[in-house]
Design a protein around this nucleic acid. Structure first.
Lengths: 158, 158
DNA sequence: GTCATTTAGTTAATCTTTCAACTTCTTAGG
DNA sequence: CCTAAGAAGTTGAAAGATTAACTAAATGAC
């Protein structure tokens, strides 16, 4: 115990690591957002396009997409409506479960993805990946994966 | 070059690291937000309280606070208005520069901070710091700090 | 000294996110 | 079967964030 009231405050080292993580995570998101802006996409839009592009038949159930992108159902629903208006995706009924809907990539969505992806990857490289050595990447991954696992399970038991 | 069109796509290792960072950063923010909720604070509120608490006289100029918290002037202005309504801070005129304003921690803001900080630190420990070894923390910091530096300078030259 | 530029901050409009209430369909228990 | 509970998704309203336009004060170039 570090202080009279039992709180274990962060050491300088811990503090510095915590702030570094915080700063990188926010600055990076802003930067990626800025780099997508010329294409008229947000990070959210892009992430949905990635998920759909990588799925069989370029389609996913709304709930699965919400889970994959860590969004609430409501938020995803609004998001998909906006993307539908932009012509990037469309909704399609699900035969096997008549409550369900698919979000499906349109041709325009797919074309957009093919056009934008190289720029986005370049951006991720320039502002993150290429700033780290192979060893750092490996270490980072091995440190962060258990954290992600922990957080996912903490999220589950709400 | 990895493909015909010159795009250097991410390797599996790079991809995994990138996703790990992305996941941790989002899940962690959600978790911290959830842990602050019982105290009626958001992450944003908390960060402002931290900055003011650590400042001389518990006050900061609006612009400095905006820079420190990586927010736009407009967003900060709204944010401070809300916190003013909640009685956590107040605005005060700046004598030396009559355009300027200080955001100042109120007694209630300071009391709130003293009460909430231990819980917040515990939360940061539980969901991040304590999941990493001393070596991992050090490595993480050394990897991320240059990235933050890069991003800050990229942000500057807009 | 005065006029143009820059800096500090706010405001109104718009867009996005969250929250709670709701509909429709599925599933499990009796 | 039929009913209660749960799951899938939407919707409208309220809260939060972004954008652009704005006021007022400071700076700096002549």
């Amino acid at each position: 115990m570090d202080t009279e009231n039992g709180t274990r405050w962060l050491s300088d080292e811990e503090q510095a690591t915590w702030r570094a993580h915080l700063d990188v995570s926010r600055l990076l998101m802003h930067q990626l957002e800025r780099d997508l802006q010329p294409f008229g996409l947000t990070n959210n839009d892009y992430e949905i396009l990635v998920n759909l592009s990588e799925s069989d038949d370029h389609r996913m159930r709304m709930s699965d997409l919400a889970t994959a992108t860590l969004q609430s159902k409501s938020r995803l629903s609004h998001q998909i409506t906006r993307m539908e208006n932009a012509g990037l995706v469309r909704r399609e009924n699900c035969e096997s479960d008549r409550r369900g809907l698919f979000a499906v990539l349109t041709d325009h969505g797919w074309e957009t993805m093919r056009k934008v992806a190289p720029h986005h990857v370049a951006s991720v490289r320039e502002h993150f990946i290429d700033l780290l050595s192979a060893e750092e990447l490996k270490a980072l991954q091995e440190s962060l994966r258990p954290v992600a696992k922990h957080l996912r399970s903490a999220r589950g038991r709400i």
